[in-house]
Design a binder for these strands. Structure first.
Lengths: 347, 347
DNA sequence: TATAATAATACAAACGTTTGCAAAAGGCGA
DNA sequence: TCGCCTTTTGCAAACGTTTGTATTATTATA
């Protein structure tokens, strides 16, 4: 008789009504203390475990939030999830995770499934710049927070790292080390992550009076192999461009770039200086002390959670077009610098 | 009128019964083709989205499986989740993720919450060797699969890497490179991951007729700092022990050990050879070509999924005491070797 | 002791589905 | 036209809760 006992069953056994049992267990409403005690005893005796599915149906809230992202095995996303999960769990919410493997079709399919399950909110790292995959949620007024990439939708809530600041600090770091010709490897021409990181690089160069040499800008696709190829292209035209440093804007591409540099028989930082992006393992453990700009992932997750909790509490859901940009860090040997605090909220 | 339309609503609008609408939409049962068409039209028109919560209640199955693990930001776990998620999604199941931050109290608390939500199964990387936190599931006969650590419970289903084989191959690799005195850094004295990895190391030494020097066995706690400390302890007694190689049995500890070695002014592999464990980023991208044993995480996730699907289909749930041990890989420069296939199933 | 006020409990509807069974509609041969 | 079989549809219960309202039991007040 274990495991399938319900309010009804307990009520029958005790010869009282279901509603009394329910109220006795939920501490909420007034029930005679004596009754409550007895009900609690019985509940324990019969191994009663409340059925959250039924509760969800009745309350029309599942206390569940969905996270849809391109690749959970990227430490970047895993850490965001961790930060988010932590704050949500503290408030009784759990996380459903969907990994799209960077495919837009899966993305919309999963989001559709999640909507059917009536999750209370969606956190989305979209691979589709338009943000269109989120429409079921958007239309129904269910909260959505975009992370990483900023979608076209103007009214969407977004929380990301401040990519411009990140690139600025990386570039400035190299400038202050005396470099004048600095190459950059970007991950995307169309996504905001790429666009903004380029922008920061430009701004830093302008600010110090340097020209931007378009020949020094190469593109990959955030994956390792593309970093390798991009670096090779840069090295091929090194004679003309004469760059002495390179800034690579993603972890995997950084590894690829390092390989290309090594294969070319060059050393870091002897022949070429390098600043990487989000190099987590080398950062925690830095066997080779690569300077790297990092995103505060857990903090992003936490902020997303806090925003969501706020949205979920105050019933007036819907998008408010909040854009929050968290400050990146730079790891330079043993020094860790928080760059700046920009939590710009526009409404 | 968007977003909150139900079967009932559609039925009312069309002046037919709810059950007909339900059957028309679920393709299952016989409905006049004409009616079906009309119902589908209407469903589209009113933006009907089935409510899976209600469905779950009725079917008493949520098509959701829970994954509880100590740290999702560990690539090891993230990849298992990815592999698992992929196969489950293909069958309409979604994943609820819970990160215990390595705390046993959180673990049981989360599992309790998950049981209330009536997830269909539990995948658990426990931090509590007893496996006691899984009791709600175990008692109710809901499928549970343990990963990574093997719990005390004999009848539990477990899928892990073959740790003995992993250690054997790592040790043999060093032996075949001519090393005789090989140190080892383990992560745990009590968990099976630690015990088995030690066992493999022992077996490899015995097999080649070497003595096991207890002085060469050091323990950490799988974290980076402990690898650093353990390596320092080893280096301190290097005069007496005269080891020429070290095998470190976790990713983070390997990074720590590398740091200790470097701080001692030694080089790898010049002064000391090293085999690491699960070095993912260096493996994908291997800027420094560390030899490392790796676990086939996505394959583990996939196997877990397949086992679960089988359990969920054939109603006779419950634990069967299946133990599957997947074969590890060794990455040695550019060579990748699958070690062997041991899918031992004992019933 | 009757009556009003309050505390405790019970009733029943609702949340949105699925599904066994009964009822109705349609088709066909006699 | 009637009866019978088949196809299609409808009814109603069930899944396990919550919750507004009605009812009953208890106590205090006059």
């Amino acid at each position: 008789m274990k495991g399938n006992s319900t309010l009804k069953y307990i009520a029958q056994q005790m010869g009282i009504s279901v509603s009394t049992v329910s109220r006795a267990l939920n501490e909420k409403s007034v029930v005679k203390e004596e009754t409550r005690k007895k009900v609690q005893e019985m509940a324990k005796k019969y191994g009663y475990v409340p059925n959250e599915v039924a509760r969800s149906l009745q309350k029309s809230s599942t206390e569940t939030i969905a996270v849809v992202l391109p690749d959970i095995s990227e430490t970047f996303f895993a850490r965001i999830v961790k930060g988010l999960e932590n704050v949500m769990m503290q408030h009784g919410y759990m996380i459903i995770l969907a990994d799209t493997r960077e495919r837009a079709d899966k993305e919309s399919q999963y989001i559709e499934m999640l909507y059917r399950r009536r999750v209370d909110a969606l956190v989305l790292a979209t691979v589709d710049c338009s943000g269109a995959s989120a429409t079921p949620f958007l239309e129904s007024g269910t909260p959505v927070v975009f992370i990483d990439n900023i979608p076209d939708i103007v009214s969407a809530d977004v929380i990301t790292v401040d990519n411009i600041a990140a690139s600025k600090v990386a570039t400035k770091y190299l400038l202050s080390a005396g470099h004048r010709k600095i190459a950059v490897i970007l991950g995307s021409k169309t996504e905001t992550t790429g666009i903004e990181r380029l922008e920061g690089y430009r701004q830093a160069l302008y600010a110090s009076g340097e020209e931007v040499d378009e020949e020094l800008i190469e593109y990959g696709d955030y994956k390792m192999e593309s970093g390798y190829e991009a670096m090779k292209r840069l090295l091929e035209k090194r004679r003309e461009t004469a760059f002495s440093a390179v800034y690579v804007t993603s972890e995997k591409m950084t590894y690829g770039a390092i390989r290309a540099i090594r294969e070319a028989g060059l050393t870091i930082p002897g022949d070429l200086s390098l600043v990487g992006f989000d190099i987590h393992n080398l950062m925690d453990d830095r066997p080779q002390m690569i300077t790297t700009v990092c995103q505060p992932e857990e903090a992003i997750g936490k902020k997303v959670g806090e925003l969501l909790l706020d949205r979920l509490k105050n019933e007036e859901n819907g998008q408010k077009g909040i854009k929050m940009r968290l400050s990146p860090f730079i790891y330079e040997g043993d020094t860790v610098k928080r760059i700046h605090e920009t939590e710009s909220k526009y409404c």
